[in-house]
């Protein structure tokens, strides 16, 4: 199956990626090739097969409800692009 430019635009938006026209063309082509590879899966009947999300049948371990972390704001915000008064700054959020 191949994908169209419109699909590329849609998924690029969902993934918050900006693509130039040239990049969109390239993406449509290469992703179509990848989908052709992926589509080989459809040759096998899997109607009665249970999907496998994890390689092993392990189950989730639980953590005790205790506070183990302390305030490290200053340290952690040293590597932030932009902060003020302890807040991370971003372009205005419009609701």
């Amino acid at each position: 199956m191949s994908i169209e430019l419109g699909d590329v635009e849609n998924i690029a938006h969902l993934a918050r990626l900006h693509l130039s026209n040239e990049e969109k063309q390239e993406a449509a082509g290469s992703i179509s090739n990848i989908l052709a590879l992926i589509d080989q899966m459809q040759s096998v009947d899997t109607d009665n097969v249970e999907p496998l999300a994890h390689a092993f049948d392990a189950v989730q371990r639980l953590r005790e409800d205790v506070v183990t972390e302390s305030n490290q704001r200053d340290e952690l915000q040293k590597i932030a692009p932009e902060t003020e008064e302890g807040l991370y700054l971003v372009p205005k959020v419009i609701e």
Partner: peptide
Amino acid sequence: VKRRIMVGTYA
């Protein structure tokens, strides 16, 4: 990386 993000997003 962008290509794989898009493939995954599509899937």
